[in-house]
Design a protein around this nucleic acid. Structure first.
Length: 473
DNA sequence: CCTGGAGTTGTCCTA
DNA sequence: TTAGGACAACTCCAG
């Protein structure tokens, strides 16, 4: 009796073994499974923090696979060339992967699939990253949704497949193909001195993500409707960093949310709506990929945003020293933890695009370098929403007032104190840690005095309103 | 095709 | 002090 040929599991943004349809399909082939992660252009193009965080995730996944008698094979190079090499080395007859929806990934995967099929290799992509495939959600006129609420109404009562358990063991080949050493990829190289400060704030890997989900649905979810707005509290799930790498699946989140809802936590629905915002972002990326790089509403191309990223006020924004406490606190939170509270994201985006009249792409690109939960679809939608040029965007006259926002959402100034050290008698450890994370070239010290505002809040608001009102487009 | 209702997250002014 | 309306006009979507 001959053994069945191996199957390759090509892992990308599904770094988990539970509820991973690609893994299950590879196992179902009956032969050995060879999990492969390829460092191709899509990895090379990642910003500093996302690349570093990916490395942590890969290390954790390698351990998880090892516990199941398997391994994670790491290779660097073009995806197709690499897959063909592994096929050649192992005699694999099939390749499985979980679909992605950005244009580069779609083009790559399409070419890979065609080339493999041409060589008689089975190539199968699976539905694993989203709750609903983008082409399965249509308006009654047959188009895709451009407004969130109707999309929510259209999908909220749909059946989402139950999450599937991890296989009890993953069949291994008699001999393993060679693997790169993760350390040699130096995925954290661009983090400089930030990694040490940032590391304790990461919650890495599948097991940690599942624990985090459980803790969230056991606790904060019941107060989510109000708690999610308070940046000094732990009112959110914090699962974004896990979702972006697929350390946890959206389906696992959805069903946990449903469970909480059925157990009487009405606010769970508000959280499930956020999961559908992620869907909305991915669906829009699929249907209108230009959302990633250009104003979704083309008429905004005429808007006089400043695109000079070297302006002092833009540098100050990046470095968390605009002199506006809520803005600076949030920017520093991002630099230290790799994430930023959602309320902070709205405020810093409003401030950059409106008070500072800066093109959203500049903020977007900085986020792409600093966020360990970096997700291209969600960030494109979020930035275009804040700037006003996106689908279902905020109206132009809705300009967040960072002072008012403090009164409403951080009345005890706990969040401000957590992240701002200057001018404080007893700075918090987290606020001080910012100065250990940033590059020395920034020449910032907790002993500095807190900066004056780079623009008056009234002045910035009026300037933005005038520009938006005068828009000739 | 037409019609009507609605639209994540806010701010400010006025009564 | 606080509640309510203005802030635009348009696109989107269901019926």
């Amino acid at each position: 009796m001959t053994r069945k040929p191996p199957s390759i599991l090509w892992l990308r943004r599904d770094l988990r073994i539970s509820d991973n349809p690609s893994l299950l399909a590879a196992c179902a082939k009956g032969g050995p499974v060879i999990p492969v992660f390829i460092h191709d252009d899509s990895v090379a193009h990642l910003g500093a923090a996302p690349a570093w965080r990916l490395g942590l995730s890969l290390a954790d996944l390698a351990n998880t696979l090892s516990d199941k008698g398997s391994r994670l094979i790491l290779r660097k190079g073009d995806a197709l060339d690499t897959l063909l090499a592994v096929i050649e080395e192992t005699g694999a007859q099939s390749v499985h992967w979980s679909r992605l929806y950005d244009p580069e990934a779609i083009a790559r995967d399409k070419a890979v699939k065609a080339a493999l099929k041409e060589r008689g290799i089975t190539a199968t992509s699976h539905d694993a990253h989203l709750l609903f495939e983008p082409w399965t959600v249509e308006t009654q006129q047959g188009g895709f949704y451009k407004v969130y609420t109707p999309l929510w109404r259209a999908v909220k009562d749909r059946d989402v497949p139950e999450p599937e358990a991890a296989p009890s063991r993953i069949p291994a080949p008699d001999s393993w193909p060679l693997s790169d050493r993760l350390a040699n990829w130096a995925l954290g190289a661009a983090m400089h001195r930030g990694a040490e400060v940032c590391l304790p704030h990461q919650c890495v890997g599948e097991a940690a993500a599942l624990e985090r989900l459980q803790a969230f649905v056991d606790g904060p979810i019941k107060d989510y409707a109000t708690g999610r707005d308070l940046p000094a509290t732990s009112g959110t799930s914090n699962l974004s960093e896990n979702l972006t790498h697929g350390e946890i699946s959206a389906r696992q989140c959805w069903h946990s949310g449903l469970g909480a809802l059925h157990a009487g936590a009405d606010a769970a629905e508000a959280w499930m709506k956020e999961l559908v915002w992620r869907e909305f972002a991915y669906h829009l990326t699929y249907h209108t990929p230009r959302i990633l790089t250009a104003n979704w509403r083309e008429e905004w191309d005429a808007f006089p945003w400043n695109e000079d990223a070297t302006r002092p006020e833009v540098i100050a924004w990046k470095q968390g020293r605009t002199g506006v406490p809520f803005v600076d606190a949030a920017m520093r939170e991002m630099y230290v933890t790799g994430r930023m509270h959602n309320r902070g994201r709205m405020i810093v985006a409003s401030y950059l695009t409106k008070h500072l009249m800066t093109h959203w792409k500049i903020g977007h690109d900085w986020f792409a370098d600093c966020l360990t939960d970096w997700d291209p679809a969600s960030n494109a939608l979020g930035w275009q929403w804040a700037a006003g040029c996106g689908p279902d965007a905020t109206p132009y006259f809705r300009i967040f007032n960072p002072e008012t926002q403090i009164k409403k959402f951080d009345p005890g100034h706990d969040y401000i104190h957590r992240w701002i050290a200057e001018g404080t008698a007893a700075p918090s450890a987290t606020a001080l840690s910012y100065f250990d994370a940033i590059p020395r070239s920034w020449r910032l010290s907790p002993d500095d005095s807190y900066p004056d505002p780079v623009v008056g809040l009234q002045e910035g608001r009026k300037r933005a309103l005038a520009a938006y009102e005068n828009r000739a487009f």
